[in-house]
Amino acid sequence: MRIALFATCIVDAMYPETAKSTVKILERLGHEVIFPKAQACCGQMHINSGYMPEALPVVENHINAFDTDDYDVAVAPSGSCVASVKHQHPYLAERLGKPELKERAIAVGKRTYELSQLLVDVLGVSNAADQLGSYFPDTITYHPSCHGKRSLGLGDRQLDLLKTVGGITVEELPEADQCCGFGGTFSLKNADVSTAMLEDKMKNICSTGASACAGGDASCLMHIGGGLSRTGAKPKTLHLADILASTMEETVTL
């Protein structure tokens, strides 16, 4: 299969290792990965902040970059950005009176998958150790990010994959389904509430005794990790893709 990687802007600029991990996993399964260079961002930050006309060039750019016959499916290591592509792009096009763009947005959305969704539903991965050689000899806990869980309906796909990584111990996160408080510009505009939510999330993470909190969205992890770092707490944050890409030979370290 020819798979187009949508790296997402935050991974591209801040967490390039996570994109590399995604490439590694897919290549290990024997697929060809391409990176459409015209891509930049899903536009979620603009849309969620209410800057709709400003979001338009960003969304149009994404649709132009991915509305091609050059690949079979697209994948992103982010539930949130995929949810934006699937749900927000058609809304924006309709709001701004662009029916043709809306049709194209829907078509691109249909071909776009979140990483665990692609691995489990399309590529038939059910055991990460056996099928991907994943190995991570440490204790983690897992935070299911809201957009993946609710907007995409990922269920336990990410957690189930993590549980099948070789050498891993997964501790259950109390109140896992509670939002971490990131919410994009919510973390700036309503910094106090965001921080109050973050505090509870960090408390729950620390209560598990895990060395790391894994998740499927770099943005939530940056928020949680930033808070843990500030408070001097022990646990780090790590993207699902990085754990799945970790092997006996090339083990990811915290």
């Binding site: 790296a7 991974v11 591209d12 600029a13 801040m14 967490y15 390039p16 290792e17 994109a19 590399k20 990176f35 260079k37 973390s187 910094a191 921080t195 973050l198 940056m222 928020h223 990790g225 930033g226 808070g227 770092s229 500030r230």
Partner: peptide
């Protein structure tokens, strides 16, 4: 209430 990690030397792109 949060730190930001130092950015990488090179983007994925």
């Amino acid at each position: 209430s949060r730190d930001i990690p130092a950015p990488p030397n090179k983007s994925f792109r």
